[in-house]
């Protein structure tokens, strides 16, 4: 190690160099929102048909009529 550089300075600089990309990575430019007509396959997987009257959305058990007619 060069005499002008202390061990502390070396490791501090190394930490700063490796941390900066991570810190900058948090400022991600948001993606363009998808059109509503494009269904996310992940959303479809969260729908479970229970019977003729009920469906589950991500585990929430809901009456089908409220999905189509809205909650009264």
């Amino acid at each position: 190690m060069p005499k002008t550089t202390t061990r502390r300075k070396f490791f501090s600089t190394l930490a700063l160099i490796t941390a900066t990309p991570v810190a900058l990575a948090k400022h991600i430019i948001a993606e363009e929102p998808q059109p509503l007509s494009v269904m996310d396959t992940e959303m479809l997987e969260k729908l479970t048909h229970i019977d003729s009257d009920f469906i589950a959305v991500d585990g929430w058990v809901l009456p089908i009529k409220s999905m189509t007619l809205g909650e009264s």
């Binding site: 589950a56 585990g59 809901l62």
Partner: peptide, 24 residues
């Protein structure tokens, strides 16, 4: 679990979110 969730909703008490292993 499923019967409870349905009747809880039908009774107007609220909504139940069942654990993933109930439906899968």
């Amino acid at each position: 679990a499923i019967a409870l969730a349905k009747e809880f909703n039908e009774a107007g008490l609220g909504t139940i979110r069942v654990a993933d292993f109930i439906l899968d």
